[in-house]
């Protein structure tokens, strides 16, 4: 089995475990406010850590990455959809790298 395929199977398993365990086993509610709050903040912390500083190295030049990042920040602030933000950032990076 190839490395990538093995990794995907492992990803599928560790994605399924947190989904299935509570609904299959638990009958009582979690009482700890800390754990509940912690879980609710996980998506934000994960996305932040994955995005920065990696975004700076995601294109051929630091300057085009910055241009793309600023584009994404502005459009997200005005609550444009995921696809719009992604496509506009790609476009800005593409044009930036042509004119540099």
């Amino acid at each position: 089995m190839s490395y990538a395929f093995t990794a995907v199977i492992v990803m599928a398993i560790v994605t399924y475990i947190p989904r299935v365990l509570p609904i299959a086993i638990f009958r009582k509610k979690i009482k700890s406010k800390f754990i509940l709050s912690f879980l609710s903040y996980v998506p934000f912390a994960v996305l932040a850590a994955m995005t920065f500083p990696d975004i700076l190295y995601s294109t051929n030049h630091l300057s085009s990455a910055l241009a793309g990042m600023i584009t994404a920040l502005i459009l997200s602030y005005f609550e444009k959809g995921l696809m719009t933000v992604a496509l506009c950032s790609i476009l800005v990076v593409y044009l930036w790298e042509i004119f540099i």
Binding site: P43, T59, A72
Partner: peptide
């Protein structure tokens, strides 16, 4: 050339997920 500019797409989407909330 378009494919290389697409390196930013994933991170742009992450930003779009985090900024509004």
């Amino acid at each position: 050339q378009v494919q290389s500019a697409m390196g930013i797409a994933l991170y742009a989407m992450f930003i779009a997920l985090v900024v509004p909330p």
